[in-house]
């Protein structure tokens, strides 16, 4: 069963993902940290699907689909920004600062 330990592991991984978004400046690493957070949420769904029914595993499918779409569009945006500024460092991406 391992319900509590799974949810605790999920909480740990989500926290590590949030910390990664805060401490890194590379846009690609930021995206990888978002993927880590999505993985942590998937683990929650799978752990609770043991108790609350198989719908949780169906939701994991949808989360994976959205994650794949987000990665494709996000990386395309990073490519476009890289052509413009020759960098993926967030300190060089300040077009909206005025």
């Amino acid at each position: 069963m391992l319900l509590g330990p799974s949810l605790l592991l999920s909480a740990l991984l989500f926290t590590i993902g949030v910390a990664g978004v805060v401490i890194r400046r590379n846009a690609i690493v930021l995206f990888m940290c978002v993927e880590l957070m999505l993985n942590a949420v998937n683990l929650t769904f799978v752990a609770l699907s043991q108790v609350l029914g198989l719908a949780g595993q169906v939701i994991v499918f949808f989360v994976m689909t959205v994650a794949a779409a987000e990665a494709a569009v996000g990386l395309a945006i990073i490519l476009a920004v890289f052509r413009h500024t020759r960098s993926v460092d967030l300190k060089n991406i300040n077009l909206l600062q005025g």
Partner: peptide, 10 residues
């Protein structure tokens, strides 16, 4: 905040 999740049991 999330630590309480570790105490969830069926």
């Amino acid at each position: 905040q999330l630590f309480l999740l570790g105490r969830v049991t069926p």
